Amino acid sequence: MKPRILLVEDDQTTAAFLAAAAEALPAAVDIAASCAAARVQASNIAYSLWLVDAHLPDGTGAGLLHELRGLGMSTPAIAHTAARDGEVHQTLHDAGFEAVLVKPLAAAALRAALAGALSGRMSSRVAESGLSEAASADAIPATWDDAAALRALNGARAHVDALRQLFIDELPAARGLVVASARSGNHDALRGALHRLRASCGFVGAARLEQAVVALQDAPASAAALAAFDAAAQELSPPD
């Protein structure tokens, strides 16, 4: 029988990428978009592995793992995060995750990590693929980085196109949340929205928008950074 994996991820583009990559192991994948949904799934289904986002709408991956362990569940667990901060990674390891995957990462890198965990060979480490690094402030990236997107999906052009369409469909809502949070000074909501968007930009190769996301993460109170983000997002958003 194929192993069954619980993927906990609230961003639809990221969830679609991770699920498709994991299913090619092969594996059966169930998706939960919140801590509450994941608790229900994990309590009722025997999973071979949990793949948990570090930041969720109703809590954290570390908090969710603590709750599940408190219920006596010992399923192996891997965290995934767009954060590149070593302290964040260490916190996830200390919470009990066997590995930390840094998004975006290529499908092959994800499958290697999952296979290692499923076979009991995964040592505690941070896995980074180097798939997507935002361009420097002096560079002007292309709107779409096809090479990065194709690397992420093992050269499958049809998969890239499908994932990009999902990303584009979801982008207006994400853009609206970022702009509203920045203008209202709600930096917690802004950080969360940018964190999710950065990972999905990397998966689909939205290079110019990813650069703008990183710049706004670095300067959340900057009107210029917000304007640059808004322009890059509007460039990709479907017409009203």
Score class of each variant (00 low, 15 high):
residue 204 V to G: 01
residue 239 P to V: 13
residue 175 R to F: 01
residue 57 P to R: 12
residue 83 A to Q: 07
residue 92 L to F: 03
residue 17 F to E: 00
residue 133 E to R: 13
residue 68 L to Y: 06
residue 193 A to L: 04
residue 212 A to L: 08
residue 149 A to H: 04
residue 69 R to A: 05
residue 151 R to H: 12
residue 88 V to F: 07
residue 212 A to G: 06
residue 57 P to K: 13
residue 72 G to P: 12
residue 13 T to Q: 02
residue 150 L to V: 06
residue 2 K to G: 06
residue 27 A to I: 06
residue 150 L to K: 02
residue 190 L to S: 06
residue 117 A to R: 01
residue 112 A to Y: 03
residue 15 A to C: 04
residue 211 Q to T: 05
residue 66 H to M: 10
residue 100 V to Q: 01
residue 194 L to N: 07
residue 179 V to P: 00
residue 76 P to T: 10
residue 43 S to Q: 10
residue 162 A to Y: 02
residue 21 A to T: 00
residue 179 V to W: 00
residue 236 L to N: 00
residue 159 H to M: 05
residue 60 T to R: 02
residue 195 H to K: 11
residue 191 R to K: 14
residue 202 G to S: 10
residue 71 L to V: 00
residue 184 S to R: 13
residue 19 A to E: 14
residue 113 A to W: 04
residue 161 D to M: 04
residue 74 S to T: 15
residue 164 R to N: 04
residue 99 A to N: 03
residue 25 L to K: 07
residue 173 A to L: 12
residue 131 L to I: 02
residue 85 D to I: 02
residue 51 L to N: 05
residue 154 N to S: 14
residue 211 Q to K: 15
residue 231 A to T: 14
residue 61 G to D: 08
residue 97 F to N: 06
residue 5 I to Q: 09
residue 40 V to P: 04
residue 162 A to P: 02
residue 80 H to E: 04
residue 87 E to M: 11
residue 173 A to C: 05
residue 70 G to A: 02
residue 209 L to T: 05
residue 79 A to M: 04
residue 212 A to D: 08
residue 132 S to I: 02
residue 18 L to K: 04
residue 177 L to S: 12
residue 119 S to H: 07
residue 134 A to M: 08
residue 168 I to P: 00
residue 216 L to C: 01
residue 11 D to K: 03
residue 98 E to P: 00
residue 104 P to R: 08
residue 79 A to V: 10
residue 116 G to F: 06
residue 61 G to K: 01
residue 100 V to Y: 02
residue 65 L to N: 07
residue 55 H to A: 14
residue 17 F to V: 01
residue 59 G to E: 07
residue 109 A to G: 13
residue 104 P to V: 03
residue 224 A to T: 14
residue 86 G to Q: 13
residue 69 R to H: 13
residue 145 D to L: 00
residue 41 Q to V: 10
residue 31 I to V: 15
residue 171 L to D: 03
residue 21 A to L: 08
residue 170 E to C: 13
residue 109 A to Q: 11
residue 180 A to V: 05
residue 107 A to N: 00
residue 70 G to T: 05
residue 42 A to E: 02
residue 171 L to K: 00
residue 15 A to Y: 05
residue 102 V to I: 12
residue 143 T to A: 15
residue 5 I to V: 15
residue 97 F to S: 10
residue 173 A to E: 12
residue 114 L to D: 07
residue 19 A to Q: 15
residue 17 F to P: 00
residue 35 C to S: 11
residue 200 S to P: 03
residue 221 A to G: 03
residue 101 L to G: 01
residue 52 V to W: 01
residue 119 S to R: 09
residue 185 G to W: 07
residue 217 Q to F: 08
residue 229 F to K: 03
residue 84 R to T: 09
residue 51 L to K: 03
residue 32 A to L: 07
residue 223 A to H: 10
